[in-house]
């Protein structure tokens, strides 16, 4: 159960995520060429404003995109009504945002 604004938010967040997903995949392939270790990842990401912004934006876009997608599923399969649906969308979105932000802060600060 979405209107034009949620539809737009989901499409725009998807558009933001497309280059970020490819960037993330490319970095994964590049990063593991000499083996994978936490120290190596942290040496690249800690103190980096670029990676902080890259993954910060990724987390925001993913939280918006996933919460709207799950909202549609919750309505169609669980028949959850409008008020509870808004609550659920907000909870899922903020949950993803908090979890993602914690991860980004942990590897960049």
């Amino acid at each position: 159960m979405i209107g034009v604004r949620l539809y737009l938010a989901q499409r725009l967040s998807a558009m933001v995520m497309v280059p970020l997903v490819f960037g993330h995949l490319a970095i994964m392939i590049y990063a593991i060429r000499d083996g994978l270790s936490a120290a190596e990842i942290l040496s690249r990401t800690q103190g980096s404003i670029f990676w902080g912004l890259f993954y910060g934006l990724f987390v925001i876009a993913a939280a918006i995109h996933a919460s709207i997608g799950l909202r549609v599923l919750a309505h169609e399969y669980l028949k959850i009504g409008n008020t509870n649906l808004n609550l659920l969308t907000g909870l899922i979105g903020s949950g993803f945002l908090i979890l993602g932000a914690r991860a980004v802060i942990a590897v960049t600060l």
């Binding site: 159960m1 979405i2 209107g3 034009v4 539809y7 549609v72 409008n82």
Partner: peptide, 9 residues
């Protein structure tokens, strides 16, 4: 057609 039951569903 842009409301909660509109075309975006």
């Amino acid at each position: 057609v842009s409301g909660k039951g509109g075309c975006h569903n």
